[in-house]
């Protein structure tokens, strides 16, 4: 593990990603304390202003301070991305591990169901689920987690299938170890690393998907400060103040770039052969 960390530090992609993510995490934790204004407070006389000394990034149509809203929004965005991905990864990993190791008919059935889910694009799938559950932040997390589960299960399963033919697994079977021991103690530690790498890239997708759902009105609800929602609310005012869309758009992109870079850096650190940029 330590070697992977050093290799990650030596990797320029990983370092850039790590820096961006650390910055975003810092904002998620400290943002609300740093915000100069209450994110929901109206400044009626200062509506749709550009950046100024009083309002660093300008104000929106209600005169709310965009900088404060961006700072507050960091928390919901990061929490959304991490929770949804972690839930999806955990479910997916369990399903993939058991299905891949046990094999046979049960595996066949699980795989066909996963294929069916994979035939429905993620956005469409989350839309369907939110139609049923009702659009709010918690349900959006659940919807994205469910949408991610099958692909994580499939990735886990493919790693399990290659691991289970390895001789250390054969040795454990010949030794007479129980299936549970082999799955969770022998195979799982070897599966976890590549799967976590995959899921770290997926955080970027989750952030983007979450923002899209908020934009469509099915995620975070007003008046909460959320980046996707901020763009949706600004739709009618864009021709008067482009800042309204620019700042939250930029913020989403920075976080997504951070996780993309970090994930790729992690992947390279784990698999040095593909390592060169």
């Amino acid at each position: 593990m330590r070697e992977i960390a050093t290799r990650l530090i030596r990797n320029p992609l990983g370092v850039a990603g790590l820096a961006l993510i650390s910055f975003a995490l810092f904002l998620a934790v400290a943002g609300p304390f740093l915000a100069p204004y209450d994110p929901t407070q109206f400044h009626v006389r200062a509506r749709l202003q550009g950046p100024s000394a009083a309002f660093w990034l300008g104000t929106d149509q209600f005169g709310r301070d965009i900088f404060s809203r961006i700072l507050w929004g960091a928390r919901s965005t990061i929490v959304f991305g991490l929770t949804a991905t972690m839930l999806g990864t955990t479910f997916g990993m369990c399903i993939g591990l058991v299905s891949g190791y046990v094999g046979g008919r049960a595996d066949e059935i699980v795989m066909r169901l996963i294929d069916a889910k994979m035939a429905i694009p993620n956005l469409l799938f989350t839309l369907l689920i939110l139609t049923v559950l009702g659009g709010n932040a918690t349900n959006a997390v659940i919807a994205v987690a469910i949408a991610f589960t099958p692909s994580m299960a499939r990735i886990t399963r493919s790693v399990v299938l290659s691991e289970r033919t390895r001789d250390y697994v054969n040795a454990a079977r010949a030794r007479g170890e129980s299936s549970a021991y082999i799955m969770f103690r022998e195979i799982l530690p070897n599966v976890a690393a590549p799967v976590i790498v995959e899921s770290s890239i997926r955080v970027a997708f989750a952030v983007m998907l979450g923002a899209t759902l908020s934009y469509l009105g099915l995620g975070v609800q007003p008046p909460s400060p959320d980046w996707g929602l901020m763009i949706a609310e600004a739709r009618s005012f864009l021709q008067r103040s482009a800042w309204l869309a620019l700042w939250p758009g930029l913020s989403i992109a920075v976080v997504a770039i951070g996780f993309n870079l970090f994930g790729d850096g992690l992947r390279d650190a784990l698999n040095p052969r593909v390592g060169e940029a």
């Binding site: 983007m208 899209t212 021709q239 869309a245 758009g249 989403i252 992109a253 997504a256 993309n260 870079l261």
Partner: peptide
């Protein structure tokens, strides 16, 4: 190409679309 690639895959379509409207569809 790599840098543009990272930026490209990290911006959701609705953001790109909104920015395109702001930049290229001004009345």
């Amino acid at each position: 190409v790599g840098t543009l690639g990272y930026i490209g895959v990290s911006i959701p379509e609705f953001v790109i679309a909104t920015l395109l409207i702001v930049a290229l569809a001004r009345p």
